[in-house]
Design a protein around this nucleic acid. Structure first.
Lengths: 204, 204, 204, 204
DNA sequence: TATGAATGAGAATTCATTCAT
DNA sequence: CATGAATGAATTCTCATTCAT
């Protein structure tokens, strides 16, 4: 019993440490860029001994890769409950798109890592990250296809181009927001982006 | 006479070396990322002794910054002659947008550096880069404003959001093109992007 | 218990390494001059990997500054027990002055670093060094002032000039001793210096 | 004839350039230390192309060595006319000592190089410099010996110790003057130094 | 599992010196 | 003599990673 409790406590502590490291990494990657952030920096920020990082992550590369995965997971957690099953495609698209803006708005350091470091960097060519990004993008593509089939969006709209516009627009708007010191409401801006694109996608 | 000729030859050689370094840097930055590219790598690729880099660039930072500046210059050189003075705003917008796609298509390594490494990234906050990017973006904003005044584009279109969509769309489409091995015609894709956005911008 | 012992052993080893580095540095600085001594040299002499130096000293500068500080500390340790509290000022002056000569005699490499490299040189302007030197010099000045007040030394003796003569004399005599191969007894020479100066300082 | 004139002009220019380099070197050595001063710095300060330095000096080492020689020469030029042949030894000693203070006062950058760089550094072990320094010091020793023989100075005064006190005192006083920003009259201070030492040297 | 200490393999940068002209 | 350009050899410093305990 005692040892069981101890084990649980240990596991609990382990999970916490892991999160500490991951969150310190997210923050620092966003601030200084991935390559300019050393494990020593991360250890210091996470208040964990440097070599303990290796108890949780195989190496720096593994840690770097886990940052987007971790956040995609959180983003899904946030999005899922909001999606009304059976709602129409455009509505679902809007929810997914806007939830992402909200997530960034609440976790600007992740926004920074993702839009300023991970997505644009060659790391996206890394299979694990690419898969997560692709999966996310694919969702957009499918919903856009549905909207086309439903006659809401133009027949001649290329769903991949449309998805690129949504993702690219989000990326640019976020990057500007971050680079200029988050001076305005990102979610509002997100709405404008959605509306403008939606207008361009609509059946005439 | 002789010394004049000699001088020219020397200057010629100097300019060539400078270009060699810059182009090797552009290539490698795109392939491996800026921070992962060492001056040793660049020197080797440019077939120039490492220390000679310092004859042409103050330090690595200066070399990094010169890459986007240099290419923006080239992009302007390419765009300017195509702009029909007095042409309408939308037409000029289309030319500028499409010329950029053509330029990337012809200089994919620059595309890689610019869209995957420099913009959007912490380097974009670097004053010299920011200035060049801002100048470029401002042009879009102005033409969009003109188009709104002319009644072509919707009165309630926010020109900054519109610009973000154009730039962000270009960025995403380019990134995908690069990351997926340039399997299709980027310029064609660019046309689709422009058309879709244009539709969304139009006065109903 | 065990871990306590281990810790002590580790700390012990650490302190030893630190001392090794410091002593190798002192020796080499004296032999070749500070700027001509590379960290690579020091690492080799201390039989420690180059990068380990950075585990003990922030950078070369910090290492350089620690040399005089460290030795001033040792010099104080040596001098303090010899000072008879309540002894007259001149006697205390003599003890301090002669103990320094003895210390140099026993640690010629420090003598070399201090009298040929650090003081007098641009490094002496370094706040940390200046503070240590000033503190040491001030002691001389105060004792000389006391001796003047006690009527032992001339009323019109400038204590700062007197201190300069003592320090300068020590510096020159040490330098000559070192440069000419330490062929004679430095402490004896020190006595002659003290006597001659003392004579010049006395009330007629 | 014409070529003779040209030659002379060239030689004239050569000598000037040589002086420019030497004086720039003296200045910079004093400011930053010999090892921290690069030939590039010197070339820039002397307004001479870097490689031209090699037309006048074999290498950096040769240039460094020439700085004290050059200044000793100038010091001799200044001192010689002031020495009254047949004057008594103490008077001559005073003149030589004080002229040196005046020279430093007028050429503080040389004072800095000499007292903060050349004399205390191992460079004094360099035969050429050592010879010049020794020659200068010997003069003091000889005059002190004369003064002893003449019965002015104490029979039991060691002339070498006495010389060390004069040189060391000058060195220390100058170093302090330089390090503290030349806030007072160095020549006056020099007089105090001479008087105090002289008192200590006198026959009771 | 935890961790302080250690380290090898680079990285950027500097600089005396050479050389072709 | 003059000089712009070129360069090899060092130098300081960083950092991911390992290891003994």
């Amino acid at each position: 019993m005692a040892s069981g409790t101890t084990l649980k406590l240990k596991q609990q502590r382990s999970r916490e440490r892991r999160e500490q490291i991951l969150s310190a990494a997210t923050k620092l990657f966003g601030e200084k860029g991935i390559d300019r952030t050393s494990l020593t920096d991360i250890a210091a920020a996470a208040k964990v001994p440097l070599s303990s990082i290796y108890d949780y992550f195989e190496d720096k590369r593994a840690l770097v890769l886990e940052v987007p995965e971790d956040n995609f997971e959180a983003l899904y957690q946030k999005t899922e409950p909001l999606l009304v099953k059976g709602g129409n495609a455009v509505e679902q698209l809007r929810i997914i798109f806007m939830t992402n803006f909200e997530y960034i708005s609440e976790n600007p350091s992740w926004g920074r890592v993702f839009f300023l470091e991970i997505w644009p960097s060659v790391i996206a060519a890394e299979p694990r990250v690419k898969k997560a990004v692709d999966k996310y993008a694919l969702r957009y593509v499918q919903l856009i296809k549905q909207a086309i089939r439903a006659g809401t969006y133009r027949r001649n709209l290329d769903p991949y181009t449309a998805m690129s516009l949504m993702m690219g627009g989000m990326c640019h708007v976020t990057a500007v927001w971050l680079l200029y010191g988050r001076k305005y409401d990102l979610v509002k801006k997100g709405k404008a982006v959605f509306t403008t694109l939606h207008n361009g996608f609509l059946q005439e």
